[in-house]
Design a protein around this nucleic acid. Structure first.
Lengths: 219, 219, 219, 219
DNA sequence: GATGAATGAGTCTTCATTCAT
DNA sequence: GATGAATGAAGACTCATTCAT
């Protein structure tokens, strides 16, 4: 058996067990059993239990980011790109439920390492969104007063919460397509009914906009 | 010292320690020290460590829901209500950072109890949002094709992710007001620049809209 | 309330709880509740949990010994006395089941104190039996080769095991009278059918008897 | 080291420690030290502390019963069999003092499990005695009015109490042979001096005997 | 490399005992 | 004297990690 096989087998087993039990309630012996190896074997491939978790993040999140970037590469229209991002994100969750569960749960732990790690690695993912926004603003199709740093978090958070809903409930109320379409449209068009002659508050010259920018603490 | 005092003292200490270390890495002895009581005293007020966590949720989340509902009571305009909700939510997070940290981290654990609990208690909170949407739709100021069940999750998720950002970074890039304004405007007006004569995809009669509704699996 | 009352109330409650749960599984708080006093009150009357157990032995066993001695006082015939002893012993067990349970169980603990205590206090009780034997031997109605030191233990053991059987089974197969009669007759007449001309092995001049006495290690 | 070895090593160490300190005062760490293994190792072979105790009973009492039955197999005469039983029983106690101590002390605990267990396993042992009695009655060498259900308990109790005496006192006053001979003779011939023409009360036609049988509550 | 028996540090929890009221 | 809330020492048990085979 090739080394790569066993490394991967343990990783896949860990994803399954961590997803089911959570990191702290997962037992090394369970992972070993799931991976069909001896307990000790795991330590030939990983330094410790925590290292397995980190490796899951490193390897799997990297793959996801790469996949999303690649699939967005040939979409030009920023609005379309945003919708596509939502669709891809939700599809990945749908197809990797165990992994998604782990990322959602364990990446929120308050361990110092996790916090730093999330900041770094996650930034890359979130910045795909802010890039789309900036591109749209440059192209003049997105409002100038939208702050990409806030938008990327809001947009990701919306998708993320939708994902959690799916992971929790076995039966799905909405399809991935519907959710992706609705959410991207919320962010693109808003839910307010377009009243002729009325423009968005975000474009408003009045007191609100200036105030918005004076709210910025740091850039 | 009144019983209520000690119960509360232990709860506050737990919130602090759980937020700092996470539930699994928190030691009962740390909580006891933080609360200035003996280890054993904790067990006069709580059945076990897990019971403390549950009690935090039960008592604190209840307070929050009550507070939000009350503060929204005298706002009439649905759009204004949505903005207010965002503002209140973010302010509560800002003012209860330890508690917010715990809710964000521990309420995602995959324990069966937590899952069920979250489903129940959280539904109440999310439904504040969907009520606003339905009210807006009834008043004709929100689009009819917005699905409240998706919207409430998207809107909450956006706020929640923004909160996490704050909890992670010590220095805040954006003020609460700015974030609340931006996020509620994203959802109300969308970020797409209003092109005269163009209507939202959500209102579009074309292929997209019909497909949206055929996507609904369950209502 | 008189002090004596509370001391006694706690003792009676302890007997009940110790009998039900055993000494090690009995909780001071249970005893307090059963005695209708506060936990702390128990320590006004006893030094510690173990002291309660000791006191039960001291006070109650003393009463029993006195009672048995008194009831046997006006019986003259040694054989009748033996039967009477059995009857009284079994009746006391019958009427003080909780206490009997405790004596049976806890007085066998291997604690150094208990061992010494049993040796001392118990000797007094067992010696009532050996006195009867010696009296019978002196009167010429009991065999001379019966060793009172062995007999007292055998006779007591027989009654004790019969008692345990009663304490364990809720429904009684045999009456106290029947058991006392049978057991005392076992020891008095033996169970072997009397064959005319045959004498007991105990009276036998042959190899056995001399061997019996040469077996004595210490007197 | 073979698994059987360690299982047995822990069991033997437990027997020693339980005998010395009693079950409740024995520490797992003491057993581990005595067995020359780590504390945790014990839990590879036993579920918990109590399980060790149960296993001691299950494995050791079974051995004893088998041994007694086997050694009695080639004795024909019921009276001789009774004497032999006494001898074997006392010899086993002599040779397994720690085990005997545990059986005497812990098997009397009032735990529900112990009670049930004792009832079941012990019945088997006691019934060896009642079988001997029935055999003797069938052969016409034991009296018909002896109740085997009472006799077995009386006879066992006598031996058991004698054993306890040995376990408590370091120096032995009597040899095993002497005690076995005396006790079996007590039960076979009785201690009353045979007066010519006098028959046992058990055979008496008078008021006593009929009363005996009317005392039987259940058969 | 692979194994899995063995390790022992670490922690929740219990409960006899104390002592301020 | 009586209370019962508070204490904190003590111990069973778990499980990540090691290492001899």
């Amino acid at each position: 058996m090739k080394i790569a096989d066993k490394h991967s087998k343990i990783l896949q087993a860990s994803i399954k067990v961590f997803a089911q039990k959570g990191f702290y309630n997962a037992r090394i012996s369970e992972i070993a059993q799931e991976a069909n190896v001896a307990d000790g074997t795991i330590y030939l491939y990983f330094n410790n239990k925590y290292d397995i978790l980190i490796t899951i993040f490193e390897e799997e999140i990297g793959k996801i980011i790469a996949k999303v970037k690649q699939e967005l590469a040939n979409v030009e229209d920023p609005a379309e790109k945003l919708y596509k991002f939502a669709l891809i994100h939700l599809n990945i969750v749908e197809e990797n439920q165990d992994l998604a569960e782990i990322i959602q749960v364990e990446l929120r732990q308050s361990s110092k390492f996790i916090k730093e790690y999330r900041n770094k690695k996650f930034a890359e993912y979130l910045n795909i969104i802010s890039q789309i926004v900036r591109q749209g603003q440059a192209a003049g199709v997105f409002r100038q007063d939208v702050m990409p740093g806030i938008f990327k978090r809001a947009f990701f958070g919306a998708l993320d919460e939708m994902s959690r809903f799916w992971l929790l409930s076995s039966k799905k109320k909405y399809t991935v397509n519907l959710a992706a379409r609705q959410i991207s449209d919320f962010f693109l068009q808003g839910i307010a009914r377009q009243v002729p002659g009325r423009t968005s508050a975000l474009n408003d010259d009045s007191s609100v906009s200036p105030k918005l920018f004076s709210d910025v603490v740091t850039v």
